[in-house]
């Protein structure tokens, strides 16, 4: 668990972070979103003390981060940055094994751990262990960056725009992998991004920042349904945010049991999003869809009224 209480950071006369309070629960993925210069990266880096905060308290598992030895603290926290920061003169395996080596794990255990992580991140050991970073694609390098951050099995992971430099397709697949990884590992993750779609897709909790302060925080759906002000609304895409909300809701949450009426010709998978369902309706000129399961067996139906109208919590 990470807790920031009234944390302020000043650079000279400039206040980068202004009395910010934030609580990230264990196992939660918290995304800090905002325009550039809003203090989100500074906030992140104050947690592992790459930047020392000026005022307030930062707690980690109940202890102030100032009480930790700087290096011990950082070795307990995984850290991933945009350009990966891989050491160009070390092989992939050596890069991943960095923190375990700093922690003086015995060599066989390090090797074992490195292989385990490479498998976890889909990097075949045979072909990647001895490569150098310059021989990797952007996506592969970023995977190595994540593996390196996870090496010593830290409870906390700090990620600073980790997918910012990747092309959209690689970025989406890595986002999916991170979601998958998180559903298995349940790390406490603080994730900085300026890409609202990325934040909406990944975060359990979204923190929107502006000029060093938190404007609003909550689950993605909470923010989409009830943005605190115009700034948050525009960050969320203005009028498009309805579509983004649709993209966060599964068809299975809205569908009704099959009615005795004639079955609709247009079909949509059960685990598709409402956004995709809407697209199917648009394409097929239909206002009613048959919802099918993985085996293409009809399991329910979804009408346009139902899609746009009803609330999940009804």
């Amino acid at each position: 668990m990470i807790e920031l209480i009234e944390v302020t950071k000043r650079f000279g006369s400039e206040t980068a972070v202004d009395r910010l309070s934030l609580r990230v629960e264990k196992g939660e993925l918290c995304a800090l979103v905002g325009t550039s210069g809003c203090g989100k990266s500074t906030t992140l880096r104050m947690i592992n003390r790459l930047i020392e905060h000026s005022e307030g308290e930062i707690h980690l598992e109940g202890r102030q981060v100032r009480e930790f030895d700087e290096q011990t603290l950082r070795r307990r926290i995984g850290y991933v940055i945009q350009s990966t920061g891989l050491f160009p003169h070390w092989t992939v395996a050596r890069n991943i094994g960095l923190v375990p080596r700093l922690l003086r794990w015995p060599a066989p255990r390090i090797r074992e751990r490195v292989e385990e992580l490479m498998a976890l991140l889909g990097l075949p050991v045979d072909s990647f262990a001895d490569k150098y970073p310059h021989q990797l694609s952007g996506g592969q390098a970023q995977r190595v960056g994540v593996a390196r951050a996870l090496a010593a099995d830290p409870d906390i992971l700090l990620m600073d725009e980790p997918f910012g430099a990747l092309d959209p397709i690689t970025r989406e697949s890595l986002q999916a992998e991170l979601r998958d990884l998180q559903s298995r590992l349940h790390k406490t993750i603080v994730f900085v991004t300026h890409d609202m779609d990325e934040a909406l897709g990944l975060a359990d909790r979204l923190v929107v920042m502006k000029a060093g302060r938190i404007v609003q925080q909550g689950s993605p759906l909470e923010l989409l349904r009830d943005p605190a002000d115009d700034f948050v609304a525009s960050m969320l895409g203005g009028d498009d945010r309805g579509l983004k909300e649709a993209a966060l809701t599964r068809v299975s949450e809205r569908m009704l049991p099959l009615s005795p009426r004639l079955i609709a010709r247009a079909r949509v998978p059960r685990d598709a999003t409402l956004h995709q369902a809407l697209a199917v309706m648009f394409r097929e000129h239909a206002d009613r869809l048959t919802v099918v399961d993985e085996d293409d067996m009809p399991v329910g139906e979804l009408s346009l009224r139902r899609l746009v109208g009803a609330r999940r919590d009804e």
Binding site: L50, R76, I81, L86, P88
Partner: peptide, 13 residues
């Protein structure tokens, strides 16, 4: 590269 140095520090070196 400053990123490399930052990540070295961030990893606890």
């Amino acid at each position: 590269s400053p990123q490399v140095l930052e990540s070295a520090r961030g990893m606890g070196m």
